[in-house]
């Protein structure tokens, strides 16, 4: 009944609040002493609790980076696990300050949900996972297949577009949670499970015998994933946006968790601006001068976070591909800190 309480909270917020809600998110977060961050209900690599109950993942690192920038303490985050269909309501109602939950940036979400996407933390695309025993090598061979999907995602609509575009028949079984959808796929109710490719790799790890399943080569959509905030609080929007950009820029500048203190003493004008030894860029955001070193100390730069959570340093072993930096053959790019 989480859903109903969220809607009730949203209705209450809409009905009773007199000033536009959430215009003072930074102050609210500071007063609370805690960042409230919406994450998934357990997606290895992006946001999942480990065996000690600590949340880890690429999306989690974005939350921790924001907390580090605000409090200089990456542990001051309350993680709120949300299903795909509840996530926007939780943000709208003010239950969370930022949603960092592998969420695809689309025009309709940006305009009609009252949210702002603060950048792209992972360039993804939608794919299919099938049992090897089915002997399917391409998504174009899926005519007549039953497809398990999580409801409330862009995946649901992409599947409809793709099958219609290729004149294929399909049957879609939509579940409220990813886990339920994967369970039904594993039990044989569906021939394929569809989701963003990164999620397919993550969910495959949860299966009894991951080696019996393959991810088909076709990527049928663009899924730019990133954190988002409520519309109407530009300062908070800037903080979240530039926290992500700081992680990406840190990688580009070669600043890592290990060498951050050393780099902070550098004489290079670019690094002096970034580390606040010259100018007050951090303060312009409403943070402190040393905001970048706080972030990198807490989570490392974007590349470190990527490798640790989803890349070669993790069980997922996803290649960086599109997510390489722009000057390394990818499209990951952040505006300059100056």
């Amino acid at each position: 009944m989480k859903r109903v309480s969220l809607v009730a909270a949203l209705a209450a917020a809409a009905v009773f609040s007199v000033s536009p809600a959430g215009a003072q998110t930074l102050k609210t977060v500071k007063d609370r002493g805690m960042l409230s961050c919406g994450v998934s209900q357990g997606l290895p690599g992006f946001s999942a609790p480990d065996d000690k109950g600590n949340w880890t993942g690429l999306d989690v690192d974005v939350c921790r980076a924001i907390a580090a920038a605000v409090f200089d303490d990456a542990s001051k985050v309350k993680f709120v696990p949300l299903s795909a269909k509840d996530r926007f309501t939780a943000l709208q109602s003010g239950e969370i300050d930022v949603l960092s939950r592998n969420t695809t940036w689309t025009l309709s979400r940006d305009t009609s949900l009252g949210v702002n996407f603060a950048g792209i933390s992972y360039f993804d695309g939608q794919g299919f996972m099938a049992k090897k025993a089915l002997k399917v090598n391409s998504a174009l061979e899926l005519n007549g297949a039953s497809i398990c999907v999580q409801t409330g995602t862009t995946n649901e609509q992409n599947v409809a577009d793709y099958f219609k575009g290729n004149n294929m028949k399909y049957e879609v079984i939509a579940f409220a949670n990813a886990d339920e959808a994967v369970k039904a796929y594993e039990s044989g109710r569906c021939d394929v499970f569809t989701s963003d490719v990164s999620q397919l790799y993550a969910q495959r790890l949860k299966l009894a015998t991951p080696a019996d399943h393959i991810v088909l080569p076709e990527v049928i959509s663009k899924e730019p994933l990133g954190p988002l905030v409520r519309h109407g609080d530009d300062q908070w929007f800037d903080i979240v946006k530039w926290t992500l950009f700081a992680m990406i820029n840190a990688e580009e500048l070669g600043v890592t968790q290990k060498n951050v203190d050393e780099m902070a003493k550098s004489d290079k004008p670019e690094l002096k601006r970034v580390f606040g030894t010259d100018g007050n860029l951090g303060e312009q955001l409403g943070l402190t001068k040393d905001w970048v070193s706080r972030i990198v100390k807490a989570t490392g730069n974007y590349g470190e976070s990527f490798e640790r959570n989803v890349g070669t340093g993790s069980k997922l072993e996803i290649a960086r591909g599109l997510n390489k930096l722009w000057n390394k053959g990818g499209i990951m790019y952040a505006p300059p800190i100056r």
Binding site: V7, K85, R87, T89, S112, C148, G152, E156, A174, E180
Partner: peptide, 23 residues
């Protein structure tokens, strides 16, 4: 929970999250 497309699932679920018009 089991993907039967009843009113709550397709309307208060999918439609709600696609349009965002919870109220």
């Amino acid at each position: 929970a089991i993907g039967y497309p009843d009113l709550f699932s397709v309307f208060a679920g999918t439609t709600l999250s696609q349009t965002g018009q919870a109220i």
